[in-house]
Design a protein around this nucleic acid. Structure first.
Lengths: 236, 236
DNA sequence: TTATTTTCGATTATTGATAATCTATTGTCA
DNA sequence: TGACAATAGATTATCAATAATCGAAAATAA
């Protein structure tokens, strides 16, 4: 459950990866932003090699795309990417809840605390603050499934998930979300994994759909303006 | 659906990755085998840099483990790793079947062909041959879900899956597997994704459990001999 | 002998330099 | 003018050399 051999490796390339990863996830580098090896190397007082390695790792994580002899840029997510990611996330969390439920029956104090924190964040209206409270709750459920591969997969969806959350400013009914959270924890407290899983799936799918409709409208509009760019976005 | 921008990148590090990946997956390099950067560089008439990059990518794929200043070796899989992988695989395929079913109603000629090929391979008794026919069938179903992330996740489980299949020589009832395959395709042909999904889950879980029991016995025995090593295997 | 320190060989991590390739611009010719 | 080739600048890909680190064997001390 706990981070396995994660003895905070401290070679340059790992530090670079963590730094860039953070910058991408928090939006300092926007999608499409070009990352130049030597530029970053100079900024961090290091050389090209470790930066290259970091790029390759980020590519494996799906944060950047690399084209040989052309360069590395922050991955651009198509609407389809986001949909697929939320679909995958729903599958993982639904099943994780089923696995975690037996372990959680009558033992959900921690999760309740998290739900309360989310509620507070939701009322603040700050979507960024909301995300920092909401995501750990969902991740915790996946952790409690006891399956570390599911956790890895869930983590691998962070870029897409955070992107969509950022896109969602004001579009989501946070009150409804709160009610879902409460019902999910209640089901888990009963040891009813099947129900908890279904609620989670509905909760996540709702979130994706509300925004999907938004995006469809946006896509349709942008296609009228620039059909070619939109088509390319689908391909990359 | 098809491989996106996978324009067979041809830089050295990618070729190295593919080569090593194949050697690991086919068992040329056994778990625990040490990979030395300069040795491989010399063998392939290249230098250390590209090999290092390839290692980092293989690490991200879960094929090797890297310890700074110590080296890189083919990942050793614990029994738990294998169980978790099959659990994850079952989730993915079950859900993929549900998604793919509508598209497959009355349109399963291709899958039937694959099932026939698997049957032929099963009768040959060659487990390696069996795997090369069986895995594409399962992968195809995931592809037909239309969700490329699920395909990526499924691919990420290949190392564990192939390892377990190799371990299974003679222990699996291939006839029963064949019947499952037939029923799965029949359900898909009816457009009954729910049923197809459940059959897939049962099919995969069966496979994992039969071998799990084997492994439990083995583990129990080895624990009596060397409890410490077994405990460590759980951690890595 | 046993435990501790030192040294040495092997290997990884990083660096700085060079080669290969791409993009965009400039210049040439019809 | 417009198409096309040549060139220059920027960037990645690779190489070869050096520094840092580790593990185990050898040497030393108790």
């Amino acid at each position: 459950m706990a981070n396995q051999g994660d003895m905070v490796r401290d070679c340059m390339s790992d530090r670079i990866r963590r730094l860039l990863s953070e910058r991408i996830l928090t939006g300092v580098y926007e999608p499409g932003h070009r990352l130049v090896e030597l530029k970053i190397a100079k900024e961090l007082n290091t050389s090209q090699g470790p930066v290259r390695e970091a790029f390759r790792e980020l590519e494996a994580l799906g944060l950047v795309e690399v084209e040989p002899y052309k360069g590395t840029r922050v991955r651009r997510l198509s609407e389809r990417d986001l949909q697929e990611a939320f679909e995958a996330r729903a599958v993982i969390e639904q099943y994780a809840a089923e696995l975690a439920a037996p372990r959680l029956r009558g033992n959900t104090a921690e999760l309740r605390r998290q739900v309360a924190a989310i509620y507070k964040a939701a009322n603040s209206g700050d979507i960024d603050y909301y995300a920092t409270e909401d995501l750990p709750f969902h991740r915790r459920i996946v952790e409690l499934s006891g399956n570390s591969i599911l956790v890895r997969f869930w983590d691998a969806l962070q870029f897409e998930v955070r992107t969509r959350i950022l896109l969602s400013r004001g579009k989501v009914n946070l009150n409804e979300s709160h009610q879902f959270h409460q019902r999910i924890v209640a089901a888990l407290d009963d040891g009813n994994g099947k129900l908890a899983g279904e609620l989670l799936r509905e909760h996540i799918t709702n979130f994706a759909e509300v925004l999907g409709a938004e995006a469809d409208a946006r896509d349709a509009a942008s296609k009228l303006v620039n059909g070619k760019a939109a088509a390319e976005a689908q391909l990359t």
